[in-house]
Computed example of a mutant assay.
Amino acid sequence: MSLRSKFFFALLALGPLTLRAQTLPRIHSMGNRFVNTQGDTVLFRGLSVADPDKIEREGHWNPALFEHVRDMGATLVRLPVHPSAWRARTPQRYLVLLDSAVRWCGRIGLYVDIDWHSIGNLETGLFQDQIYNTSLQETFSFWRTIAQHFTGNSTVAFYELFNEPTTYNGQLGRVSWSTWKKTNEDLIHLVRSFDRQTVPLVAGFDWAYDLTPLHEEPIDAEGIGYVVHPYPFKRGQPWEPRWDEDFGFAAGKYPVIATEIGFEWKEGDPADGAEHYGTRITQYLEQHGISWVAWVYETTWWPGMLKSWDTWELTGCGRFFRGAMHAAGR
């Protein structure tokens, strides 16, 4: 038996009861905040890693990865699960990866966001790339499996129900907010039949950027949060008034978390300058009480924060987000 096989069978043998022994204080959604069991406001600052399937296949899936994430200043790590990887590895074997991450993170004080990482129109069944291909049935099945498996484990703070809903400017067909609203409400109902405590996260349209439908039709569910991905190319400058209009207003009433922010850094870029996107978006989110997660702690995905797995050397955007998290956490 190979070492990899022994690793998987050993983790399977541990089972969910051992997994639940390593937990952190429960996170809840209250008003427009995320709070801990004492009712104290928790503003998360975190990092997204690559798909765990990719990381494991490349030989880097181990506790050291999450220790480096924590040392960057993160309090939350996002685990993006691509539907194609979920199917190829099989749910049972993919759960082994997630179990190990949750166990490692619980031991070092990192919360976890499990993200169903698809991009496209779930209603029409059309997606931006083959790796994102899924279906309503598979999406509901995924969340039934995840919620049943991780119920009782408070290290898993968030279930991010769908990464980036988009019609791709009509190329993926039409979908109304009312339809998307009902789909998410049905997903939340399903999740809560197994797990009533982990916080579901709902993304807006335009690749998880536009939350303006909340003015008229918020999700009919308590104890949830909303997702935004405010990349610099989403709107022209000046950014701040557009951010106010598109998602910032929602933070006055609901918990909001930017589960992806990021930028490409080039040599000579004033990445820590007052007018730079990185500075402005992190300051904006902090001032509005919006938790944030930087994309992506990885060597090959854009815009990567790592230059090398061997040395853990950071790129310019990696250095920026390390500094931003440490400064904000003081």
Rank of each mutant, 00 (worst) to 15 (best):
E240D: 11
S154W: 02
L126Q: 13
E217H: 14
R174L: 12
A258G: 14
P230Y: 13
T183M: 10
D210T: 10
I188S: 03
A251T: 02
A208I: 04
A258D: 12
F249N: 10
Q128Y: 06
H149I: 06
T151Q: 15
T151E: 15
W243V: 02
T151W: 12
R242P: 00
K253Y: 10
P232H: 10
D244I: 02
H189Q: 15
H117M: 02
N121Q: 07
R235T: 07
S178Y: 05
V156Y: 03
V228I: 14
Y132H: 05
E138A: 06
H215S: 12
F249E: 11
S118W: 11
Q137N: 13
Q148K: 14
K182D: 14
T259M: 10
L172E: 04
G152M: 05
F158W: 08
V112H: 09
L122P: 03
N184K: 09
K234S: 08
L126T: 13
L172P: 01
F205R: 13
G152F: 02
G225D: 04
W239N: 05
S178V: 15
D220Y: 04
N153Y: 02
L122F: 00
E240L: 10
D129A: 12
E164H: 01
P165A: 04
P255Q: 14
Y168R: 13
T179N: 10
D115P: 04
L190P: 02
F247Y: 14
T139I: 00
A221M: 08
I119Q: 01
R174Y: 08
N163K: 10
W116P: 00
E185W: 12
G248E: 06
W243C: 04
P218N: 09
G204N: 03
L190I: 02
E240C: 00
F150C: 08
S135N: 03
R144F: 00
D129N: 01
F194E: 13
R196C: 07
I114K: 02
L161G: 08
E217W: 11
T134L: 01
T124V: 03
W243E: 01
F247D: 03
E164K: 11
V227T: 14
L136I: 08
V228T: 15
T124A: 04
E160N: 15
T167L: 00
S178K: 15
Y226N: 14
F142L: 07
T134F: 07
T259E: 05
F247I: 07
L214N: 02
W239Y: 09
T124E: 12
Q137W: 10
I224Q: 06
T259D: 01
A250D: 04
Q130I: 11
D244T: 00
F162G: 07
W207D: 12
